[in-house]
Amino acid sequence: MAVQVEIWTDINCPFCYLGKRRFEEALAGFPHRDAVEVVHRSFELDPTLDHGHSDAVIPHIAGKYGISEAQAAANERGIAAQAEAMGLDYRVEGRDFGSSFDMHRLLHFALAQGKQEALLDALYAANFADARPLFGDTERLVQVAADAGFDAAEVRAVLADPEAYADAVRADEAEAGRLGARGVPFFVIDRKYGVSGAQQPETFAQALERAWADHAPELEVLGEADTCGPDGCAVPQRD
């Protein structure tokens, strides 16, 4: 018996970074965690970006939401405080954003090798914990993957072929639309329960318990007679 958890995320999304850690905290405390299968799915926050696009995060946030760069930086510091409270590094200054399509293709490549989690963690760390630009730099992406244990030549070959795993990325994104996901992170448990956003671990724990209960429903007792238990056996009554 297994519970499947599918998580739609984007490397650009800071709340995906936080949500992954909160979900992991809930999973660590789940008594049936060894029976939980986790699969990460693709979602681009801006699929219209050119694959080589890279720009600074804070001016981008300011322009997107119509706020000042000072306000955008303050918002980033607020997210950084949340991250640090969970033991995650989060750089406010110097980070960039851009097209994540190639990263999602690599995540499907990693999934095929059974090492998706390792690459996702490496990409999050490269984006949020390292101030060096990440997007639009093929060689940096190759290095991130190589440092996570992947063969650099194989990674470079995937990136050089624009159609490698592209259909898998598009299929994930189409499925997110069918499931009603308007943002990420978006967690889907057994295709029955959805959890939207970087919820607290308690919410994820409740969702896991509910899904597990569906697999192991409460036993319905159809009849009762004399039994033996820890305190002894029922004493037969004389007529």
Rank of each mutant, 00 (worst) to 15 (best):
G63L: 04
G229K: 01
V92Y: 03
L111Q: 15
A152E: 03
F135C: 13
A176S: 02
F204E: 00
I67W: 04
A83V: 03
L159V: 06
G63M: 04
A74S: 14
E209A: 14
P14D: 12
G19V: 02
H60S: 13
C16G: 07
A157G: 13
I79V: 15
S54C: 08
C16M: 05
F128C: 02
N75T: 11
I11S: 07
G63P: 05
D151Q: 10
R182V: 13
R95K: 11
Y165S: 00
S196K: 04
L123D: 00
A211V: 01
I61W: 06
L106P: 07
Y193F: 15
C16H: 07
R191T: 00
V155L: 04
G66T: 02
G183I: 05
P162M: 05
Q4H: 14
G177W: 02
A35Y: 01
G66M: 04
E175D: 13
G136M: 04
F187D: 05
G94V: 04
E117G: 05
L222G: 13
D89Y: 02
I67Y: 00
P133D: 01
P133L: 06
E76H: 14
F109L: 09
F23V: 03
R22D: 06
A80Q: 10
F15C: 11
Q116L: 12
I11G: 06
G180D: 03
A35D: 06
E154A: 15
G197L: 05
A131T: 08
Y165F: 14
H40A: 09
I79A: 02
L222M: 14
E139L: 04
T138L: 10
P47T: 10
A126Y: 10
G149S: 01
G87N: 01
V221P: 07
A126K: 09
D102W: 05
Q116K: 11
F186G: 06
G194M: 14
A125T: 04
D231L: 08
A181E: 10
R105W: 02
L119F: 11
A81S: 14
V39F: 10
E6C: 06
R77N: 07
I11V: 15
V169N: 02
H60Y: 12
Q113A: 11
L49P: 03
